[in-house]
Computed example of a mutant assay.
Amino acid sequence: MLIAISNTPRDYAWGSPTLIADLEGREPTGAPEAEVWFGDHPGSPAEVHDGSDRTLDEWLPAAAAEQGVPEKLPYLLKLLAAGAPLSIQVHPSKEQAVEGFAREEKAGVPRDAGERNYKDDNHKPEVIVALSDTFTALAGLRDLERTRTLVDALGDAPAVQALRDRLSGDDALRSAIGWLLGGAERAEIEEIVDAAASAEAPQFAAELALTRSLHSAYPADPGIVVALLMNLVELRRGEAIFVPAGVLHAYVAGLGVEIMAASDNVLRGGLTPKHIDVEELLGLVDFRPAEPPFLRPVAAGENAEIFAPGIIDFALGHLEAGAPGRVDLRGVAIALGVAGETVLTGSSGARIAVRPGQAALVTPDESPLASDGGGEVFVAMPGA
């Protein structure tokens, strides 16, 4: 079966008022539109347009009894539109999520409490592919020598020297981030931010400009300085990054297609007024410096490619515009149009057309899924 599904944008404050509306070819509402969820996550399940009046979290269990499909999806597909920076955050591994969730359940922490760290017992690795011409993100911790060079360019203010001292010692990045989030005074954060705002370092011009921009959005937030320790990444349209457990990251600006494991576990590390559990965060972060975690697609059939990070939860197929394409499915899939109009055809001959922002649920018996090449489509599915 190929069945249309839909959802309404979520109005988080950081959302863009125009990016999703422009993609869908409609007038903006005037409100921020941050994410559209295509999945069965209970936080915002998609509506299934088959006349049953059910949401996808209701439809799948019924279909499981009749057709043998899984009762739940292992992934969640989203359109994400960042008009302002999201919080710096990290996600737990599966083992950490199971342990943390059980601990907070035993302690009786309400699941909707602001100080709750683990909303479920699952990990939350994620991939984002840029749809806008550029998509700006922070992803992972920069090479330590380059970070020391950046900090050296900030001068000799006492707070800058305090940061420099921590970056020169053992376990440098853990020490620096722990101090910034849990020990530094507001005046010290402001002093470092002011130093960055006036610094001249051409090789770090983009990082210093981002510091000034973040200070406008989140005055004196310690996350501004944490961001100075991270890789600044500017994706071109069609490029992607993969964020596994433990990797600090933040999406800064742009429109993208995001796929993740079906979880809501987020521990924040700055650029937010929300709760930050510094000790728990430091226990999850991978403090090893690394290059930005780019994920390149591999060929996956006729005029098709797949972003496959090698995990069981998800993979993201991509059918390009301009020529007919075909992709093999792994389980229940969701196809999302992002450009033009595409007619999708399953192996049974069932057909459905999708335009930008429109999505279809595709059952496994319709594999392989073919496109007529009229537009561009991303196809979420379980991983290998």
Results as ranks from 00 to 15, higher is better:
Ala333His: 00
Val332Lys: 01
Pro244Tyr: 05
Ala315Met: 11
Val327Thr: 11
Val343Phe: 00
Ala333Leu: 00
Asp277Thr: 03
Ala321Leu: 07
Leu284Cys: 09
Arg330Cys: 12
Val278Glu: 04
Val327Phe: 02
Lys274Ala: 09
Val266Leu: 11
Gly337Met: 08
Ala253Gln: 13
Val332Phe: 02
Ala290Phe: 14
Val252Asp: 12
Ala261Asn: 04
Leu329Asn: 02
Ala253Trp: 13
Met260His: 01
Thr342Cys: 13
Ala321Lys: 14
Ala323His: 14
Arg237Trp: 15
Pro297Thr: 14
Ala300Tyr: 05
Leu284Met: 12
Glu305Trp: 13
Thr345Tyr: 04
Arg296Gln: 08
Ile312Thr: 15
Val252Phe: 04
Val338Met: 10
Arg296Asp: 15
Leu336Thr: 04
Ile311Pro: 09
Leu319Val: 10
Arg326Ala: 12
Ala240Met: 06
Ile334Lys: 03
Leu271Gly: 06
Arg330Trp: 02
Gly270Leu: 01
Ile259Pro: 09
Val338Lys: 13
Leu336Gly: 10
Glu279Gln: 12
Pro297Phe: 00
Ile311Tyr: 03
Leu271Tyr: 01
Val298Phe: 10
Met260Pro: 07
Val332His: 01
Val332Ser: 07
Arg237Asn: 14
Val233Arg: 07
Arg296Met: 11
Arg330Pro: 02
Leu248Gly: 02
Phe314Tyr: 14
Ser263Leu: 03
Pro273Asp: 13
Leu336Asn: 09
Lys274Gly: 07
Ile334Cys: 12
His249Ile: 07
